[in-house]
Every structure is written in structure tokens, then in C-alpha cells.
């Protein structure tokens, strides 16, 4: 997994790239959680994520819940077909903020 972060005002956009599995979720959390804790609105761009497993989905849930807790939000952007399928399999399309 590789990533890029861009900042615009209070919005941080995290562009993830590659495959998100148990082996890289700690790296993803270390990247996303501090932005949420800083009360940034976090946009996670998933256009270039070709694979995500239950560990990756857990990071999305944890990020979403942490954002609610601190009064901000996480929005998932340009979700790839394969990731959307896994989100829907987990019945999270009504829970997470999808754009």
C-alpha cells in the first residue's frame, strides 16, 4: 500500500493505493487516525485500491466511529468497484459516508 495526503482548509484527503489487508492496516490507521483526532474532515479516496479485506473494512468503521466521536466526518470518495462490493457485503453502505 502506498498513499498520498493533500490538505485544503480543514479537509485532508488521503489517497490510498494498492491492496489493503491485515499486513498494512496499522500503517493505514497511523495515517488516518491523527487527522481525525485533529478534527479534520477526512476524505479517503479509494479509486486506486484494488483489494480490501475485513481488516481494511475495520479501519473504515473505526475511522467513521472516531470521527463521530470527535465531531467531524470521514467521507469515502471514488470507491473502486471491488472495494464497494466488500463494503456492501458488510452491509455498510448505509452506515459509512459514501460519495
Amino acid at each position: 500500500m502506498t498513499y498520498k495526503v493533500s490538505e485544503e482548509g480543514n479537509i485532508s484527503t488521503v489517497f490510498l493505493n494498492g491492496e489493503i489487508d491485515m499486513d498494512v492496516v496499522d500503517k493505514a490507521k497511523e495515517l488516518i487516525m491523527p487527522l481525525i483526532e485533529a478534527k479534520k474532515e477526512v476524505h479517503i479516496n479509494l479509486k486506486d485500491v484494488q483489494y480490501m479485506d475485513s481488516s481494511g473494512i475495520s479501519v473504515l468503521i473505526e475511522s467513521h466511529q472516531k470521527a463521530l466521536e470527535v465531531g467531524t466526518k470521514v467521507i469515502l470518495k471514488e470507491i473502486s468497484k471491488s472495494v464497494l462490493k466488500v463494503i456492501m457485503m458488510a452491509k455498510l453502505e448505509q452506515i459509512l459516508n459514501l460519495d
Binding site: D53, S54, I57, S58, I61, Q65, M89, A90, L92, I95
Partner: peptide
């Protein structure tokens, strides 16, 4: 429970699905 949204516990659900 799939309606109890929290991190973890989804891998086995996916396999069964």
C-alpha cells in the same frame, strides 16, 4: 452480529457469505 457495527469480526461473515 452484522447489525452491531464495530471493527472486527467480519472475516468469518465474508467466508460464510
Amino acid at each position: 452480529n452484522i447489525d452491531d457495527v464495530k471493527p472486527g469480526g467480519l472475516g468469518t461473515f465474508f467466508i460464510q457469505q
